[in-house]
Amino acid sequence: MCEIDSDIAAVLELVERTDSRKDQRKMIGIAGPPGSGKSTLAEQIVARLNARKPGQAALVPMDGFHLDNEALDRAGLRPIKGAPQTFDAHGFVAKVAELRARGITKNFPLFDRNADRTLRDAGTVGSEATIIVVEGNYLLLQQPPWAELRNLLDATVLLKPSFEILEERLIDRWVSHGLSAEEAFQKAHGNDLRNARHVLENSMPADLTLTPVHRQPV
């Protein structure tokens, strides 16, 4: 069994043995630093769950809660976009809390990477969904208001590759976006790896910790 299949199996087993709270959806958080593969894993988990029972699972990424570039410019935060303080953390916590209730249809924002902007209400959790997979870098941060998420999630997963693996993956990512090797190195060692170190050093323990070791695309 390859690494990604093993990780998927471990998370699906966690989902299976996690109980939801009365009249509420089962909330699963998948956290990890940039380049850890959390988005790919979360997408695979939702796809596997929906293959078993269509519509039962929905994916809610944290990236939809990026602050708009105009707000970042006013606050002087545009150069560090992607750091914890460049997200609407309070809005994200409130939305996760809102999504817990079963049997309701709710919209949430998504992030358009090509346009580098948030799309309001572009995502939808249907009323039939009973499992929500929330993914993002900062789901387990110990600092408020991020720390409030831990009590809203029924089970959590933390992807925790070595710093060296993260560096390799992030450089590969920027090269795949058309940057030269030197430009990719500088880009990775800017916000990405600073934020990765922050996640690795300041996240609370998860119910399941995975340690990817391969240099697979993320």
Rank of each mutant, 00 (worst) to 15 (best):
D5W: 04
P33G: 11
G103F: 04
S176V: 01
E168M: 07
R117W: 13
D192I: 09
P61R: 00
P84T: 14
N151G: 15
E135A: 08
P205C: 09
V125Q: 00
R117N: 13
P205K: 04
G32T: 08
T130P: 00
F163P: 05
I45M: 01
R74L: 13
R215Q: 12
S6T: 15
N107G: 08
L49M: 11
L49Q: 06
A188T: 03
K187D: 12
D121F: 05
N107Y: 08
S176F: 03
V157L: 02
L41P: 00
E135R: 07
N202D: 07
A188I: 03
S39C: 13
R17K: 11
R74V: 07
P33F: 10
T156C: 09
V134W: 07
L99I: 01
L110H: 12
L59V: 05
D121H: 11
L208R: 01
D207V: 01
R117H: 14
D121G: 03
A47S: 13
L200W: 03
T40H: 04
G64S: 08
L193W: 01
G190A: 15
G123N: 08
A115Q: 15
R74H: 12
I8G: 03
Q142H: 13
V133R: 00
T124D: 00
K95R: 11
G76R: 11
V175N: 04
L153P: 01
H177P: 01
M1Y: 14
V157K: 02
K26W: 02
E168C: 10
L149H: 07
K38T: 04
P212V: 09
R17A: 05
A42W: 00
E164F: 07
L72S: 09
L72V: 12
I4D: 08
R100P: 09
P34G: 14
E135L: 05
E98D: 13
A94K: 12
G178M: 01
R173Y: 04
E182Y: 05
L12R: 08
H66T: 04
P61D: 06
H66V: 05
A83G: 04
V213D: 09
G123K: 06
R21T: 11
R78Q: 07
L158I: 07
K187R: 15
G55Q: 00
F163Y: 15
V15E: 02
D172M: 11
D73V: 13
A94V: 05
L159F: 11
Q56A: 00
E98R: 01
R194M: 09
N191I: 01
T40F: 09
N191D: 06
A10K: 10
A10L: 11
V133D: 05
L59E: 10
N137R: 14
F185A: 05
Q142K: 14
Q44K: 11
A188S: 13
A147G: 10
N114Q: 14
E98G: 03
S36P: 01
R194V: 06
V213Y: 02
P145E: 08
N151K: 09
K53S: 15
A101C: 07
T211H: 07
P84N: 13
L179H: 12
T40K: 03
A51V: 07
L14S: 12
F108W: 02
N69A: 10
T105P: 00
L152R: 11
E16M: 05
E70W: 00
T40M: 06
A9N: 13
N137T: 14
R150K: 10
I132A: 11
W174A: 02
A155K: 03
Q143H: 06
V15G: 00
V199N: 14
R74N: 12
L159A: 09
F111D: 08
H177R: 06
